[in-house]
C-alpha cells in the first residue's frame, strides 16, 4: 500500500484537503446547535456519506455491482456492538476491529467478482447478503437473534451521546472521504475506471485486474464496516432489519441520486434521500412510489446524479466526475467504451 500512502502525502502538500475540512468544521458548528432530532438526522447523513463513498468506489468507479453492502454495514455494526457487549472491549478498539474485519470479509467477496460480472455478481453478492442476514437472525447465542440488542453509546468531552457520535462520525468520515478521494484521483482511480470501462483493454495495458478489483472491494468494505460501527453507537440498538435489502436499495438510491463516480455525490445523495425520507414520514403510502420514480428518473434523465450540476454551478470548477464512460444511463459518445464492456 505504498502508493496510497504516497498519494496521501502529496495531497497533504497540495492543500486539496482545505475545502473538505472547512466544510466539515462548518457542519460541526451547525450540528452542535441542532436539537437531538435534527442532529440525529445529520449524523445519519454523515455516516451514510462514508458508506456511499465506499459504495461509489465499487459501483461508480469500478462498475462492480454489489448488493452486499448493507450486510457489510451490518457486520460492522454487529462486531462493534457485540465486542463491547460480550467482551467489554472499549469502543475505539471494537470499531477498529470491526473495520479491519469487514475489510477482510469484503475482500473475500472479490473471489466471486473475479469469476462473475454484472448481474451475476450482483446476484451472488445478494445471496451472500441474505445468508449474512440469516446468520444474524439465527445465531442468537452470539447475535441476540432477530430481537436485536442494545449497543453502548459513546460520550466524549462531556457531550451527550448524539453529539459525541456526531463529532466522531464527522471526523472519521472527513478523513475517510479525503483518503478515498485521493485514491480515486490517482493512478488507482484510473485503474478502477479502466476496469469498469473495459477490463480486457485494461488487462492488455498492464493493469493488474485482480489486484485492482481486490483493492476496490477492500476499500469499499472498509468504509461500510467503519460506517456500521458508527451506526451501532448512533442507534444504540442493533437489529437485523437495519441492514436488510431495503436498506441496501436505499443506499443505491443515495449513490445514484448523488452521482455515481463522483465523491461529492456521496455526500449529497445521503443528504437528499434522508431529507426526502423525513419529509415523507406522513405521506400515507407514497414513499415507495416516489422513491421508485426518483430512481427511474435519475437513471434516465440525470444519469450522473446531482453532483455534476453542483460543480457546474460552482463557477466552472473542474468536475470531479470521471468523465469518460458514463455508466448509468446516458448514450455513450465517441470516447465511450466498446459495447461489450458492461455485461460481458
Amino acid at each position: 500500500m505504498a502508493v496510497p500512502v504516497q498519494s496521501i502525502r502529496s495531497a497533504w502538500r497540495s492543500g486539496s484537503w482545505v475545502y473538505p475540512v472547512a466544510i466539515a468544521v462548518v457542519v460541526a458548528l451547525i450540528g452542535m446547535t441542532l436539537n437531538p432530532y435534527l442532529l440525529f438526522l445529520l449524523t445519519r447523513v454523515v455516516i451514510f456519506s462514508m458508506l456511499v463513498a465506499g459504495l461509489n468506489v465499487l459501483m461508480g468507479y469500478s462498475g462492480l455491482l454489489s448488493f452486499a453492502h448493507a450486510a457489510l454495514f451490518g457486520i460492522g455494526a454487529y462486531v462493534t456492538g457485540l465486542m463491547q457487549v460480550h467482551l467489554g472491549v472499549p469502543y475505539p478498539v471494537a470499531l477498529l476491529t470491526a473495520t479491519v474485519g469487514v475489510t477482510g470479509a469484503g475482500t473475500l467477496l472479490v473471489l466471486p467478482a473475479l469469476r462473475l460480472s454484472g448481474i451475476h455478481l450482483a446476484i451472488a453478492t445478494l445471496a451472500v447478503a441474505q445468508a449474512v442476514h440469516w446468520v444474524l437472525i439465527n445465531w442468537s447465542a452470539v447475535t441476540f437473534g432477530a430481537g436485536g440488542f442494545r449497543a453502548p453509546s459513546i460520550a466524549i468531552f462531556g457531550l451527550n451521546a448524539t453529539q459525541s457520535i456526531f463529532l466522531t462520525s464527522l471526523v472519521l468520515t472527513t478523513i475517510g472521504y479525503l483518503m478515498v478521494r485521493q485514491l480515486v484521483r490517482t493512478s488507482f482511480g484510473r485503474k478502477f475506471v479502466a476496469i469498469r470501462d473495459n477490463s480486457v483493454a485494461a488487462a492488455a495495458n498492464g493493469v493488474n485486474v485482480t489486484a485492482t478489483k481486490t483493492i476496490a472491494f477492500a476499500l469499499s468494505a472498509g468504509c461500510a464496516g467503519l460506517a456500521g460501527g458508527l451506526y451501532s453507537a448512533l442507534l444504540g440498538f442493533v437489529a437485523p432489519e437495519s441492514f436488510n435489502l431495503e436498506q441496501m436499495i436505499l443506499m443505491k438510491v443515495m449513490a445514484v441520486v448523488g452521482g455515481l463516480g463522483t465523491m461529492l455525490g456521496s455526500m449529497i445523495g445521503p443528504a437528499l434521500v434522508i431529507f426526502l425520507q423525513e419529509q415523507l414520514r406522513d405521506s400515507q403510502g407514497w414513499l415507495e412510489i416516489i422513491f421508485g420514480a426518483v430512481l427511474i428518473g435519475f437513471v434516465l434523465f440525470l444519469p450522473k446524479g446531482i453532483a455534476p450540476l453542483i460543480y457546474r454551478v460552482l463557477a466552472g470548477k473542474r468536475t470531479e466526475t470521471v468523465e469518460t464512460g458514463p455508466r448509468t444511463g446516458q448514450k455513450v459518445g465517441l470516447s465511450a467504451p466498446t459495447d461489450r464492456a458492461v455485461e460481458n
Binding site: G63, I119, I249, G292, L295, V299, G329, P337, A341, V342
Partner: peptide
C-alpha cells in the same frame, strides 16, 4: 448492452413503483 447496470437500477425503481 452498455446500460445493463443502469437498466437493472431502473428496474429496482420500477419494482418500487
Amino acid at each position: 448492452a452498455q446500460h445493463a447496470v443502469a437498466l437493472l437500477t431502473a428496474t429496482i425503481g420500477l419494482s418500487f413503483l
